[in-house]
Design a protein around this nucleic acid. Structure first.
Lengths: 213, 213
DNA sequence: TATAAAAATGAATGAGTATTCATTCATATT
DNA sequence: AATATGAATGAATACTCATTCATTTTTATA
């Protein structure tokens, strides 16, 4: 008979580890060669494993790609939640921590951004990708909106819409990522953060006073 | 001998027309199936022509795709310049015309946006794509910045940077396009324009007073 | 109209790639 | 140690797709 506890735990752990190894390899390949030119053989080679490994663990390439996107979304969500939790209790501190997160070197990195855009580029024709992205976006928008509403209530900002500000902030960071991807040479993280601060100061002056350099 | 005038003119016109027909077909295919799943046979079928036609007119698929991107960039530039020229002489009118352009139904259309993102998704691994996109971006940024600087000078807005505002505006519209692509159901062009107006009102209050509905 | 030139066709080619699967290898259980 | 089980391999398979090119069709000139 099988000792389903210790035994299986180890087995499934090893299995999960290998899946992660393949997902990591996939991310690297997409960053380097693009989604369109990434083959299962590339992924296997990058992972230091053999041909058939992708289909063994993910059933199909399609599935591997979906799972990779799902992983990226989860990974970002974790960072996102961490950023909120680890920052000061004030809503304004939390909001700024989120903005800082998006421009942090480990996230606002050309390789990483290239992978996000690779998936976004296929969103229209791949319902699965869209579902994953949409679900994530809803969450971020909701959290950001709540923070904005809190600030608006506390600061008595008349005529400012929390939804609108949240939409501006998330769209703005996505747009800045594109600038980082396309205009790599002229893009400057500092300057990008400056844009965001200028906006925050403008919309919530009481909470985001001009930063003296 | 050859009548190089009338004769060749007609020939090259026909040739250009066929190329355009193929580029249009390519755009349609990318919008429907995505860049990764668009084959030369798809494009030919969409254009109502035969297998070999793409290689006959574009030499290679790669070339067809680059030319398609170039065409899209040119097409947008034309609209962009038109929007500037056709709007009131004041810099603020021109700036708002540019924002309206990006959210105009014919441009802020899921199919069109999907094509842009398809190319952006490959920018990192395709230098040719990047060159085309970067060159366009520089132009738009420059024009937008000039308008912003003009407004800043006229309105005596202290501590507002034209470059920063221009960056915010172009990044914001690109980010709003992503929202349109991903969150198709909840995204609303009206609301997006509202976000932009709120921003403009906030940063340049004298030039963009609150719009009464 | 006859002839030359260009454009277009579409079957054939072959390079590339996802997937399969018989076999080997590693590990755990008895 | 012997056996069973899951993991991994990598050669073989089946298939897709960009590209080629011999042939046909269209168009323009003489």
């Amino acid at each position: 008979m099988m000792a389903t506890t210790a035994k299986n735990a180890k087995r499934t752990a090893a299995r999960a580890q290998r899946r992660q190894q393949l997902i990591d390899a996939t991310v690297k390949c997409i960053a380097r060669k693009g989604l369109g030119s990434t083959t299962t053989a590339d992924v296997a080679r990058q992972a230091g494993l053999s041909q058939g490994i992708v289909n063994l663990h993910f059933k199909s390439k399609d599935n591997l790609l979906s799972e990779t996107l799902r992983y990226l979304a989860d990974e970002y969500k974790t960072q996102f939640n961490l950023a909120v939790e680890n920052s000061g209790p004030a809503a304004s501190d939390r909001l700024r921590a989120l903005m800082e997160l998006d421009l942090r070197p480990s996230i606002c990195d050309r390789d990483k951004i290239a992978v996000w855009f690779a998936f976004w580029g296929e969103v229209k024709s791949r319902p699965r990708y869209r579902e994953i992205c949409e679900k994530s976006d809803e969450y971020y928008d909701e959290v950001t909106r709540r923070l904005c509403d809190e600030i608006i209530a506390a600061g008595e900002y008349p005529g400012v819409s929390g939804i609108a500000v949240a939409t501006v902030l998330t769209s703005l960071t996505n747009g800045l990522w594109l600038a980082c991807l396309v205009n790599a040479s002229s893009f400057d993280r500092e300057q990008a953060m400056g844009c965001i601060d200028e906006y925050l100061n403008c919309i919530f002056p009481k909470h985001f006073p001009v930063r003296v350099l």
